[in-house]
């Protein structure tokens, strides 16, 4: 059998596909972050905690209401999004006039409080959540075994990313949103309720984090700190893509998933670092990020 860059091509295809699947999670999470930053100028550090809450709400719904995965996929993001709306109304709203740092500090503090609360109640070991029966099993692609659930994650993530991008860039609602970011006073003069729009945008971004959490529950350990490690990587993704650029963060999410996947084959020990090295290099060459406007 011939070899490509030191490993059989079959193994390489497998690893590339896995990278793409992980990229799907990065894209989904960074999408919400970019949405919130791009339209609200808030650096939402509680995104990881909101992702964790999505997974936990799914588990709670299954455990206490016997609501299966598909129901949770709709209900859990709504619950988490609603909490996001409450946070925006009660707290974030007061910070729009201040420096970015205040929003960052508030959301970071909130993340610590939320994670600490879940840890206190549910402990650290995590909760079991099974893959829904209709998505169990997988297909043998010849070069690797592709679990049906992972295929579903990629499809769902792609659809959501493209859908969100289309809403922001191609619809009238998206145009209003973008206009409200540039000049809220003028947009209000046209009779558009800007504060409600902002609230719903934050809620929407948070709901996306919750949705990613539900999708992660069957394959990752559902525990109170599941978001805190991921969030740092996702921030790097957003920075590399260009703060606030939705398309940029989606493409970067998938791209970095691939790069990380390859690193796991050739130099596994470095796989947790590679993204940050890329971030440093990108910031040196293009400070606004790959897709950002300087």
């Amino acid at each position: 059998m011939f070899e490509l860059i030191g490993i059989p091509p079959q193994a390489l295809f497998g690893q590339l596909l896995l990278g793409l699947i992980n990229g799907a999670f990065y894209a989904l999470l960074s999408l919400g972050l970019a949405l919130i930053f791009g339209l609200l100028n808030i650096i939402n550090f509680s995104h990881g905690a909101q992702y964790m809450m999505g997974a936990f709400v799914a588990w709670l719904l299954l455990r206490y209401a016997e609501l299966p995965y598909w129901g949770a996929l709709i209900l859990a993001p709504l619950v988490v999004g609603a909490l996001g709306v409450v946070i925006e109304r009660l707290m974030l709203r007061r910070l729009y006039e201040l420096d970015h740092l205040y929003g960052l500090l508030l959301t970071f503090g909130l993340a610590l409080v939320i994670e600490g609360g879940f840890r206190h109640i549910y402990g650290i070991s995590g909760q079991p959540y099974a893959i829904p029966p209709s998505l169990q099993g997988g297909t043998n692609l010849g070069f690797m075994f592709l679990p049906t659930y992972r295929a579903w994650v990629v499809v769902a993530s792609l659809a959501l990313c493209l859908g969100t991008w289309a809403v922001i860039e191609k619809t009238r609602l998206g145009a209003y949103l973008r206009a409200a970011t540039e000049n809220p006073t003028l947009v209000r003069a046209f009779g558009i309720n800007v504060p409600v729009m902002i609230t719903l945008t934050y809620g929407g971004g948070v709901a996306l984090a919750g949705l990613a959490g539900v999708m992660a529950a069957p394959i990752y350990s559902v525990n109170p700190v599941m978001g805190s490690n991921l969030i740092i990587i996702v921030f790097a993704v957003v920075v590399i893509g260009g703060m606030g650029s939705i398309l940029g963060s989606v493409i970067t999410g998938y791209g970095l998933g691939l790069v990380e996947g390859l690193t796991k084959v050739f130099w596994p020990e470095a796989s947790s670092t590679v993204i940050f090295v890329i971030m440093a290099v990108v910031l040196l060459i293009k400070p606004a990020g790959l897709f950002g406007r300087a």
Binding site: L18, G19, S221, K264, E269, S271
Partner: peptide
């Protein structure tokens, strides 16, 4: 050798 901690083990 995988990084510690690590969430996704599919590649390994």
């Amino acid at each position: 050798r995988h990084p510690f901690p690590n969430a996704d083990f599919s590649s390994f």
